[in-house]
Design a protein around this nucleic acid. Structure first.
Lengths: 194, 194
DNA sequence: GTCTATATTGCGATAGAC
DNA sequence: GTCTATCGCAATATAGAC
């Protein structure tokens, strides 16, 4: 089936398995079996399990580089916020396991947190903070708003939609077809309040 | 120091260690050493590591029972929302490890998820959904609001404040003294928008 | 109840054949 | 590059002494 190299086959299998069970919840035996390669291939292509995990993390968080594009855009703060929300949602669609690494590293950080995860998350939040500050400066948003708290609230809103999926899928429709409706709804809440 | 029994000493040590490293990230050797008891005490008081983890989960999620009190209160929907937010924040203060189990089980569910975690989270969200529906019925909130999405947005906002702590503590003050200010700010965002 | 000692299993890593 | 076989270690669990 797969015409991929062993190396990329290991990476993609590891991405799924580490996400599903965590770094310590999966053995390199299971992992190599699932990838259809011998156990020794993990040390051959990477420097062991720990290093494979770091490679997975690196790949997963590379999508945060797109933030610079939102930052550099010439658009109104409100348009930028919509861009940010749309990007956040699409990011979770394109990288279905990202949130697991994200939360796993936030709550049980490995030694890669400060190198890979923290900078990405900080950049994401700072981007949002800048947009909100710009909106306050231009008198588009109320100046009672605390930019940091507001940014965190927005980011939390979107991420929690995906994070809570397993507990809410019985009564909340999580299908991608509803994503644009969701964006409109989130923008609506934040611009008009209840 | 501790006048507690071995059983409760094991539980409280396990609560911290499982939270810090996950179920598979800590061995019963470390755990018993940290608790100052022999390794065999874990099988004596519990039925092994897995069962100890279940006991920890059960204890951590018992605080969701308080939700009934909010539900039964006679208060306006807006007051109930403020109660809910205050309870959420206080819950994270009183149970500093709860969010780790919460997110760990949401992203890497063990076999206890559906028994202990899912019911608690569903009840929390449904409580919020009911409050919002009541507000819409009484024409206090706009009827364009989707109750489920709005409830999820609120819950996400509060939880993300705590979840993101490790990545945001450099530029966001997380001290409990600021909790009431935070509640006012969240209520402000949701009632007035940006 | 609590301990030490041990049985057994599975782990990560690698040597060496091909 | 890729495999099999194996080393050395750490895991959980428990038997049996006290």
């Amino acid at each position: 089936m797969d015409k991929k190299s062993y190396r990329s086959s290991i990476i993609s299998t590891a991405t799924r398995l580490f996400a599903e069970s965590g770094l310590y919840g999966v053995s390199i035996r299971e992992l190599s079996a699932a990838a259809g390669v011998s156990i020794s291939m993990i040390s051959y292509y990477f420097e062991g399990k720990e290093s494979l995990y770091a490679s997975v993390l690196q790949e997963q968080f590379s999508c945060f580089e797109y933030l610079q594009t939102i930052r550099d855009k010439s658009a109104t703060p409100l348009e930028k916020i919509e861009d940010y929300i749309r990007w956040s949602i699409q990011r979770n669609r394109d990288y279905p396991f990202l949130l697991r690494y994200y939360t796993s590293e936030l709550t049980n950080p490995t030694r890669h947190f400060s190198v890979i995860v923290q900078p990405a998350l900080e950049k994401a939040l700072q981007t949002l903070v800048e947009i909100i500050k710009e909106g306050i400066d231009k008198k588009l948003f109320r100046d009672e708003l605390d930019p940091e708290d507001t940014a965190l609230a927005m980011a939390g809103m979107v991420n929690y939609y995906f994070l809570s999926r397993l507990a809410t899928q019985e009564f909340i429709n999580h299908s991608p077809e509803r994503d644009e409706e969701l964006i409109r709804h989130y923008m609506d809440i934040f611009t008009k309040g209840l």
